[in-house]
């Protein structure tokens, strides 16, 4: 006879880390304060597509209480993702990051953004994936608007034969809009340096993915980067990006102080990641008894402007 009864099997386990969420003791990223921590704000593009012909952040940098500024002119040259520089002289959607400021408090940082002078040259843009694939459509990135360069094709069985056996064939086109996942917790990142070692607290579903992106962008060894996601107020896919943390890290490096950047709800909606809008044409072959003999579907997905988590 075993002397011990199983201690887990057949018993309901209390939810891990729920008690501290219920009492307010749980520390989400926005709840963390570091000594000397500055607050960052981001200047965003008012244009869907534009070239930044000139940008002058001198007055912002001189504002009392401002400790660091980063613009496309002086950002490090690494990339957050293959198609995403830290900051670029070309902006590709309304809300795209143009510059960032770190100051003693949010109000000062916000005020400093208003002192940054930007000369935009608006460019043609396209917002519907169907038009984006037409000849002559304005390119979002050099190299064309089809992410990956060719369609992703998945096939199983003999589809032509299936349609040949069908009694009836139906074909319809369906669309779904882009939507914001709108997690209740807005995105937030904190960065702090200790000599050449970087620690970042951020909302994340993949701290190692963020670690790689930070190391790539800042051109430092990944073993010098630590990314911590404490409690997270959900994400639903909308928090899989690292540029926010990279901007916090660059500002923290320049100010030699920790920097926190918290997005507002408006920024989340305007500049956050969305679920792809889709246009799907489905052709289904059926027997008269309802049995499906073949399905052929083509989906055009409006991908995010930058492929920060891969090509989908």
């Amino acid at each position: 006879m075993p002397t011990n009864q199983p201690s887990i099997i057949g018993k309901s386990a209390p939810r891990l880390r729920l008690p501290e969420a219920l009492t307010g003791e749980a520390k989400f990223v926005a709840d963390i304060k570091l000594p000397g921590m500055l607050h960052g704000k981001i200047l965003r593009s008012p244009y869907a597509h534009a070239r930044i012909a000139a940008i002058d952040a001198g007055a912002a940098a001189r504002l009392p209480g401002v400790h660091a500024v980063v613009t496309p002119n002086d950002a490090p040259h690494g990339r957050v993702a293959p198609d995403m520089p830290i900051l670029d002289t070309e902006v590709r959607f309304v809300g795209d990051e143009v510059a960032a400021v770190a100051a003693d408090d949010e109000e000062t940082a916000q005020g400093a953004l208003g002192l940054i002078e930007v000369e935009y040259q608006p460019l043609p843009f396209v917002t519907d994936a169907r038009f984006a694939l037409e000849q002559g459509a304005p390119p979002v990135h050099a190299g064309g608007n089809l992410v990956g360069g060719k369609p992703l094709t998945l096939a199983r069985g003999d589809v032509d034969d299936g349609f040949a056996q069908a009694d009836r064939i139906f074909e319809e086109t369906f669309t779904t809009p882009a939507h914001s996942p709108a997690s209740l917790e807005p995105r937030v990142a904190i960065a702090t340096w200790e000599a050449d070692r970087l620690t970042v607290w951020k909302v994340s579903r993949g701290v190692h993915m963020d670690q790689r992106a930070l190391a790539m962008a800042l051109e430092i060894p990944s073993e010098t980067v630590r990314v911590i996601c404490p409690h997270m107020g959900a994400g639903y896919g909308g928090k899989d990006e690292t540029r926010l943390a990279v901007l916090a890290a660059v500002l923290a490096q320049r100010a030699r102080r920790p920097v926190k950047i918290e997005l507002t709800r408006e920024e989340e909606i305007v500049a956050g990641r969305t679920r792809h809008a889709t246009v799907t044409t489905v052709k289904v072959g059926v027997k008269n008894d309802g049995a499906i003999t073949a399905i052929h579907a083509t989906t055009i997905m409006l991908s995010p402007t930058y492929s920060t988590t891969g090509t989908l």
């Binding site: 939810r15 880390r17 969420a21 219920l22 009492t23 307010g24 989400f28 209740l184 409690h231 959900a234």
Partner: peptide, 30 residues
């Protein structure tokens, strides 16, 4: 929320949320 119980001494209301799994990410919970 800090005026209710702490993790060692949950208020009956917090205990009911724990027992009934009344949260997912926990951000809206307080």
């Amino acid at each position: 929320i800090e005026g209710l119980g702490d993790v060692q001494h949950l208020d009956p209301l917090q205990q009911a949320f724990l027992d009934n799994d009344g949260a997912q990410c926990g951000y809206c919970t307080p």
